[in-house]
């Protein structure tokens, strides 16, 4: 077993373990952290395939940005694990069906070599870097799908802004006539919260 195989098995062992913990960890923040570990090991596996652009892109985009925002949201939520688990047996058949479907799809893709389908393996000349090759393809052969995808993303971005936009705030002018009638309880409400203890 050469060194590369050793690294591959090391990374994939971590990847499988982390992915299992994502769905079994009780604490949602822990699950999100295991997901980050899974992405990171996945980047390592891709780097072993010499797809350095994809490897770095998954770390840059998913680990560096998406999961930060995800953690941001998960940390804010007050998640009651028992309530989430209530529907477990109810949803299990649907989830199992989807899981089996994904395994079959993946098996078809990965097994194409086994079933002697001519594999479309992208081979680059040794002196062109991965990133350059990808960029050249994106802006020549696949320019229309690429532009289409970027337009869809742009629409998504604008839609998110439109959905949360509440209109411009015109001015901070206050009406003195209304101010006169303000009571203390309109402005401030004192809440008594018990100290949270685990």
């Amino acid at each position: 077993m050469d060194f590369q195989t050793l690294v591959f098995f090391f990374l994939s062992a971590i990847l499988v373990f982390a992915s299992l913990r994502v769905i079994t960890a009780r604490n949602p923040v822990h699950a999100a952290l295991y997901l980050i570990l899974a992405f990171f090991s996945c980047g390592g596996v891709w780097a072993l395939l010499q797809a350095e652009f994809l490897a770095i892109a998954i770390i840059l985009v998913y680990v560096g940005a998406v999961m930060v925002l995800f953690l941001f949201v998960v940390m804010m939520l007050d998640i009651n694990i028992d309530r989430i688990r209530q529907g477990f047996w109810h949803y299990l058949p649907l989830g199992a069906l989807l899981g089996v479907l994904m395994v079959v799809e993946m098996g078809l893709v990965l097994g194409s070599k086994y079933f002697q389908v001519p594999a479309s393996e992208a081979m680059l000349p040794a002196n062109i870097s991965n990133t350059k090759g990808l960029g050249a393809l994106m802006f020549s052969d696949y320019v229309y799908p690429f532009e289409l995808a970027s337009i869809i993303l742009l629409v998504g971005m604008i839609a998110a802004i439109v959905l949360t936009y509440r209109g411009p705030k015109k001015s901070k002018y206050t009406n003195p006539a209304k101010q006169v009638f303000v009571k203390a309880k309109d402005r401030i409400r004192v809440l008594q919260m018990p100290v949270e203890k685990d």
């Binding site: 652009f53 770390i59 680990v63 560096g64 953690l71 870097s129 990133t131």
Partner: peptide, 25 residues
């Protein structure tokens, strides 16, 4: 001296935020 060193730097530095978020949580 790797080809994608700029990308590597961007990827690695973008992970620095986890120390801060996790310490806070």
């Amino acid at each position: 001296n790797i080809d994608a060193s700029l990308l590597y730097i961007m990827a690695i530095t973008s992970m620095g935020v986890y120390g801060i978020i996790l310490s806070g949580w």
